[in-house]
Nucleic acid binder design. Structure first.
Length: 829
RNA sequence: GCCGAAGUGGCGGAAUUGGCAGACGCGCUCGACUCAAAAUCGAGUUGGGUAGCCCCCAGUGCCGGUUCGAGUCCGGCCUUCGGCACCA
């Protein structure tokens, strides 16, 4: 009586067994090489989606493989548990965010267990629990002491939908990254992290991250946006300085006007009590009312007005008119630019529109630039002309010489500008880590002492739609005593951006047990486990989370709190899960729920399909039929092993010297599969081809059984084949392999076994089929002994007079190319 | 506009270093088993010519090049996707 593959009983049985045995606990001994395998932790939104399943299946295969290859593996999981959806749920369902989040976490944990993931749950973190956010607050204080956390009034990004401010990184195309609402500007006093102090190192150290995808590094480099140039000081007629930033100081003699950002502080002064005042006021008001998208879109028409004042060019001494225009931004560079219409496309368009003069000062070779007839700016290089003492230099030389001159004369200095802005970390929300600061009437801004952490979120708050932060209305929370003087004080009511919580969680995982109560993490623990060897997650975090985590890591390094400069050595950005040509989403109605798939086919099938259907970094097309295919394969495996179970159980090792040709061939496939799967997982993350190799092995064993009658079968060989097959499949399909492993009579877990070795001698074929080409065209195939040298190969093929005659066909032999084990190409004329 | 990636059968994909294009899976066709179906097993499945096989020709987005040999390298284009986009 054949028992059928029942995924439900098998999977729950082994999940319980593994939990009981503590199979996934992080090893305490430190004599083996460590491997820290980390997947981005989820936001506990309620249930896992297929993107999670993909992410965690990839990570789990890597973790299990590394355990089998003799590594101490740290493979932890947790929850990025603060954030807005919990608060929205509180408003609409009248349930406390904490309760809502905790129940979601419990549910998702169960789902993760049911997927057969091998996490060490003893190291679980949840960023919303006081035992975690206490240390997020501690981190804030570390940065505060370092001068990296500061408060300032600024025009900040405000999302009406979320009722809170956003960091620049959280504004995508002028819309809120979370809810898609258009972002507006608001003047507010807010907390910032001085990430710009690390701009250079964040950029420079990208070169250390060779294990990251090129495009992620490029995206970060673009985001940081470094440009080297010169800050030059023009002067108004009253002598007020107008510093401008330029990367093209070689075009300084081509300046025909200056443009200030409309918000520039000098604008009011320059226009006060002049005929230009009213018009300038109206223009500034109009620009202020524009949204950032309209303002910064290249589609938007350049607009500006002359404000009646003039400035002197510090190099040429020329006087040029001062304008204000929409395309100049206050918060980049100095908020003022020099207009060089002949050599900058923006300036060109602006000058043409307003009739400002063009002056050619860079002359390219071979073309005569005529200011009257130019249709676009010449932004390339050339020879400097009309440039006083600099005329005749190449523009590259000019860049240096003008900068030298400006510095010598004291009218300018070389400087570097970044697109990156400081990280706005205040949020006007309840469900986040409170910023550990109080404001005392006498002592001013006072950090809460570490001994008084955590600053707890009060549970009894009222959630109302659209209002201000519930914390600000909670009198018991706001009222505080000053830690310095003991006098009355007011508590900061902003909470921290949740990206702070997630920018250090990988450090928390390294530290276990009682140490966690004494510190956020310990130096020995981080010294052993950090950096993360493999980080796996979605590309959507290419800038946000990954940049913030790098910044925090560097800040902690500078404090001597950790010993690594970069947190993640290798990064794998997995593709999206697509169905019917679109990302799975509720609104498109193309969502397939993991629960349904795991329920119907089991976790092993879900994992196998999702890893087989596409390479991990590419988008994955969901296919119900493909899932069926994976399920069929596991059934095929089940029948194969259970069918042979009784006969191969207890069989010894095969005797290599006593194998028939067919047996040798099967054994060769077994050993090749071990090599292939090991290389595909360990070196390439090519899980799809690794799985296809195991399928080929299964096919080969069936082929052998088909061709060899029962009594003539080599049971030792079949036993070896079954054993190796299960071992190489174990990381992908942990339950069914464990069950079959035990059915073969093994007592301990398959997941405690070492990855099998392959025998290089067995892998080698005795004979190979080579291709014989004439002039690169395949003419015939031939079996020859393996590993013949090029000369031997040539001799084998052309040494046969009949064959040589047939191949040459009366033509003249020009040359022969022989590639061992591959081909012989005969070139004839 | 700039930067980056990709383009291979009906579909997902494979070909790892320039050396047999289409592994593996899905789908489809035919067959076996069955009263029948499902499941399972077997055979076939790039296009065209020939239509029994063999065999011949073409073929990896398009055009050209390098090479004995190109899906892979080089130049130019097309398309799709992703990122950035008045950054001075």
């Amino acid at each position: 009586m054949e028992e059928r593959y029942n995924h439900q009983t098998i999977e729950s049985k082994w999940q319980a067994e593994w939990a009981k045995e503590g199979l996934c606990r992080t090893p305490a001994d430190q004599d083996r090489p460590k491997y820290y395998c980390l997947e981005m932790f989820p936001y506990p939104s309620g249930k896992l989606h297929m993107g999670h399943v993909r992410n965690y299946s990839i990570g789990d295969v890597v973790a299990r493989f590394k355990r089998m290859t003799g590594h101490n593996v740290l493979h932890p999981m947790g929850y990025d548990a603060f954030g807005l959806p919990a608060e929205n749920a509180a408003i609409s369902h009248r349930v406390h965010p904490g309760e809502w989040t905790e129940s979601n976490m419990a549910y998702m944990k169960q789902q993760l267990i049911e997927l057969g993931t091998s996490y060490d749950w003893e190291r679980e973190v949840a960023t919303c629990r006081p035992d975690y956010y206490r240390w997020t607050q501690w981190l804030f204080l570390v940065l505060y002491r370092q001068g990296l956390a500061y408060k300032k009034k600024a025009a900040v990004n405000w999302c009406v939908g979320c009722n809170t401010v956003l960091a620049n990184e959280q504004v995508e195309d002028g819309l809120c990254w979370r809810c898609g609402t258009q972002v507006t500007k608001k003047e507010l006093e807010q907390w910032f992290f001085r990430i710009t102090a690390y701009a250079d190192r964040l950029l420079e150290d990208l070169s250390l991250l060779q294990g990251w995808p090129e495009r992620v590094r490029t995206m970060q480099a673009n985001w940081i946006g470094r440009s080297e140039g010169l800050e030059l000081t023009f002067r108004t007629e009253d002598g007020d300085p107008i510093p401008v930033f330029t990367t093209r100081q070689d075009t300084i003699f081509g300046v025909s006007y200056i443009v200030l950002a409309p918000e520039h502080p000098l604008v009011a002064k320059l226009t006060a009590e002049t005929e230009y005042e009213d018009e300038a006021d109206r223009f500034v008001a109009k620009i202020r009312s524009m949204s950032d998208i309209d303002r910064t879109s290249t589609e938007t028409e350049k607009e500006g007005i002359f404000i009646g004042a003039y400035a002197t060019n510090p190099i040429s001494g020329e006087s040029v008119p001062i304008w204000i225009a929409n395309y100049v931004l206050l918060d980049y560079g100095t908020g003022a630019v020099m207009g060089v219409p002949a050599h900058d496309q923006r300036d060109f368009e602006f000058a043409r529109k307003y009739g400002l003069p063009l002056k050619v000062v860079i002359q390219p070779e071979g073309v005569e630039l005529d200011p009257e007839t130019m249709t676009a700016a010449h932004t390339e290089g050339g020879l400097m002309v009309n440039s006083g003492p600099f005329s005749g230099l190449s523009n590259e030389q000019g860049l240096e010489r003008v900068a030298d001159f400006a510095e010598k004369e004291g009218v300018g200095r070389r400087t570097i500008n970044y697109r990156l802005r400081d990280w706005l970390v205040s949020r006007q929300r309840y469900w986040g880590a409170p910023i550990p600061i109080v404001y005392c009437e006498k002592c001013g801004t006072v950090p809460v002492p570490e001994s008084e952490l955590p600053v707890l979120l009060p549970p009894d708050v009222e959630f109302r739609p659209g209002g201000e932060s519930p914390l600000a209305r909670h009198e018991g929370f706001v009222k505080a005593t000053c830690p310095t003087c003991g006098g009355p004080a007011r508590r900061e009511t902003d909470t921290m951006d949740t990206f702070i919580c997630s920018s250090w969680y990988f450090l928390r995982y390294t530290t276990a047990g009682a140490d966690r109560e004494r510190a956020a993490f310990t130096r020995p623990a981080t010294d052993y486990w950090m950096p993360v060897d493999q980080y796996i997650g979605g590309i959507e975090h290419a800038v946000l989370h990954l940049l913030y985590s790098r910044f925090i890591t560097k800040a902690l390094y500078d404090n001597g709190l950790i010993g690594v400069r970069e947190p993640f050595t290798n990064l794998l950005t997995q593709g999206m899960v697509i169905k019917d040509g679109a990302k799975m989403s509720k609104s498109k109605g193309n969502v397939v729920s993991p629960e349904e798939i795991v329920g119907r086919y089991g976790a092993d099938t879900a994992r196998l399909f999702i890893l087989f259907a596409a390479p991990p970094e590419k988008d994955l097309d969901w296919s119900d039929q493909g899932v069926e295919g994976a399920y069929r394969f596991l059934n095929r495996l089940w029948r194969l092993v259970t069918g042979l179970r009784e006969t191969v159980r207890g069989a010894g090792r095969p005797d290599p010297s006593a194998l028939t040709g067919r047996e040798k061939e099967l054994r060769r496939i077994v050993h090749r599969t071990i090599r292939k799967v090991g290389e595909d997982i360990g070196e390439r993350f090519a899980f799809n081809t690794a799985i296809s190799a195991t399928m080929e092995l299964v096919n080969a064993v069936y082929g052998y059984l088909d061709q060899v009658p029962g009594e003539q079968r080599n049971l030792e060989l079949l036993g070896e084949a079954m054993e190796k097959l299960l071992l190489v499949l174990a990381p992908f399909a942990p339950h069914i392999t464990e069950e079959l492993w035990h059915q073969l009579g093994r007592a301990d877990s398959i997941h405690l076994q070492l990855w099998p070795d392959y025998d290089p001698e067995v892998v080698k074929a005795e004979e190979v089929e080579i291709v014989i080409q004439i002039n690169g065209k395949i003419k015939r195939r031939q079996l020859v002994p393996a590993d013949l040298s090029a000369d031997q190969l040539q001799e084998t093929v052309l040494g046969d007079p009949d064959l040589a005659e047939e191949l040459l066909g009366g033509k003249q032999l020009v040359k022969v190319i022989a590639v061992p084990n591959k081909l012989v190409n005969v070139v004839v004329r």
